[in-house]
Design a protein around this nucleic acid. Structure first.
Length: 269
DNA sequence: ATTACTGAACGTCAGAATAC
DNA sequence: GTATTCTGACGTTCAGTAAT
């Protein structure tokens, strides 16, 4: 294990960095025992081993395993509803978009025009803020009116934004800032507004563009890393459950073998 | 109260894997 | 072949806990 090789680094293997290799070996070993008893699974087992050895991705491996083994649930293509929606906004209307701010806050835009901001660090309703967009009346073109209601006793805040604008996260700054835009100018999730490449002239603008691209890449990678960790956890859980299932199966087969031995070779006194 | 330790989660980088 | 996504490795931060 790597912490023996890196004894200068004061670090222990935590679950996240936990290598699933041992578990994979265990699954493979138990699976091998199964193969000796169930010869029709030989081809599938070889295929499984081959996949495990090169391990292209957790999702792919698990989906493959789930198709030929018991007790292995599929990894969803997307997060489950529970995970997709932050727990603090579980009671709201079905959101159409969820944004996460640089400070970890979630902005959920519901179909009814309700925007809710939740603070992951706080618990339950206390971290819940509501932004309500109403469509009552025809707003003047280009005008955005935000009504800010005073913070209530339970810590919630409400904003009322006429029209069908969207709220997106602003590009920089330590404070969480949001921009309200018309839908036609809205950018994909997490994308920050910037000048188009064709309008860049000065080296400074080019540098800003490079910085913007880097920040976008980092943000994407950040999300990818989170998703990867989630999949890895699920992967390890699935392997554990498979180990349990195969161990039971193995035990049964051994018992069956003993019974058959007794029948076929009765004691001779 | 302070310190040391631990586990969990995170962000970033580099390189592999995959998509186009 | 290039662009994008995924994942292992590494370092950091933070909260919880036991020892002092």
């Amino acid at each position: 294990m790597w912490w023996h090789q890196h004894n200068l680094c004061f670090r222990h293997p935590v679950e996240e960095d936990y290598s699933s290799g041992d578990l994979e070996k265990k699954v493979a070993t138990i699976a091998e025992t199964d193969e000796s008893a169930e010869s029709e699974d030989v081809i599938d087992s070889h295929k499984r081993r081959e996949i495990l050895s090169r391990r292209p991705s957790y999702r792919k491996i698990l989906n493959e395993l789930s198709s030929d083994g018991p007790g292995v649930p599929k990894i969803e293509e997307e997060k489950s509803e529970e995970e997709r929606t932050p727990p603090h906004i579980a009671t709201m209307a079905v959101p159409t978009s969820i944004y996460q701010t640089s400070t970890g806050q979630y902005i959920a835009i519901a179909q009814g025009g309700t925007i809710q901001i939740s603070n992951p660090g706080s618990d339950g309703v206390q971290g819940l803020q509501a932004l309500t967009m109403t469509n009552s009346g025809a707003p003047p073109p280009g005008a955005t009116i935000v009504q800010y209601a005073a913070q209530s006793a339970d810590g919630t805040q409400q904003f009322f934004v006429p029209g069908s604008q969207v709220v997106v996260q602003a590009a920089t700054g330590d404070m969480p800032t949001y921009q309200i835009r018309a839908p036609t100018t809205a950018l994909p999730q997490g994308v920050v507004m910037a000048a188009s490449p064709g309008s860049l002239h000065s080296p400074q603008q080019l540098a800003e563009e490079a910085t913007r691209k880097r920040e976008l890449r980092l943000m994407k990678n950040r999300e990818a890393a989170k998703e990867c960790r989630r999949r890895k956890k699920e992967y390890v859980k699935c392997l554990e459950s498979r180990v349990a299932v195969l161990e039971v199966q193995n035990k049964k087969l051994i018992e069956e073998l003993e019974t058959l031995k007794d029948i076929c070779s009765p004691k001779t006194d």
